[in-house]
Structure formats: structure tokens, C-alpha cells
């Protein structure tokens, strides 16, 4: 899905926990996330801390989208 959207000229950041799969499939901008069942969360943290971690990840994703790359990159 990432590739088809990117083929249309829109940059995509793939946020996922299994980076090797993302790499094999061919996403170009990849950000590793926390865990498979909760990529943007951490139930072991307090709700406040969890949200901070989530926000940091989304900020990282936005940064990746604004970064020029010439090959597959993990941020």
C-alpha cells in the first residue's frame, strides 16, 4: 500500500514494528514503533507518559516525511 501511494507521488512514512518486513516489501521512509499489538502505545506506562511517547513518534514521522532521501531509510 505504501508503494502504491508513493507511486502516485505522495510521500509515505511507514510506521511499523517489524522493520525487516517493511524493508523487504519496499517502503521508503520507515519509522520503527513500539510493539506489534501497540505500535503507538505502551500499556506499561501511565496514560500521560504513553501519550508523550506517541506524540514523539508522530513528530518523528512528520520529520521523516519532510526529509529528502534517495534510498530506503529507517528513521
Amino acid at each position: 500500500m505504501s508503494k502504491q501511494i508513493e507511486r502516485a507521488g505522495i510521500p509515505v512514512v511507514h510506521a511499523c514494528s517489524i522493520v525487516p518486513i517493511s524493508k523487504t516489501v519496499g517502503a521508503n521512509r520507515i519509522i520503527p514503533t513500539i510493539a506489534i499489538p501497540h505500535p503507538f502505545g505502551d500499556p506499561n506506562k501511565s496514560p500521560k507518559e504513553e501519550k508523550e511517547v506517541r506524540k514523539a513518534l508522530v513528530k518523528k514521522a512528520l520529520k521523516a516525511l519532510a526529509t529528502p532521501i534517495d534510498k530506503q531509510s529507517v528513521f
Binding site: Q4, I5, V12, H14, A15, L65
Partner: peptide, 17 residues
């Protein structure tokens, strides 16, 4: 992608588990 282009979307966050 077609739907996104139609709305002028310029960036996508795609999340996977």
C-alpha cells in the same frame, strides 16, 4: 492513492502492527 490525490493530500502516515 486516487482518493488522496483528489483531495490534494501531500503526506501519509501508514501504520502497521
Amino acid at each position: 492513492a486516487k482518493l488522496l490525490l483528489a483531495d490534494g493530500v501531500q503526506a501519509v502516515i501508514l501504520t502497521s502492527t
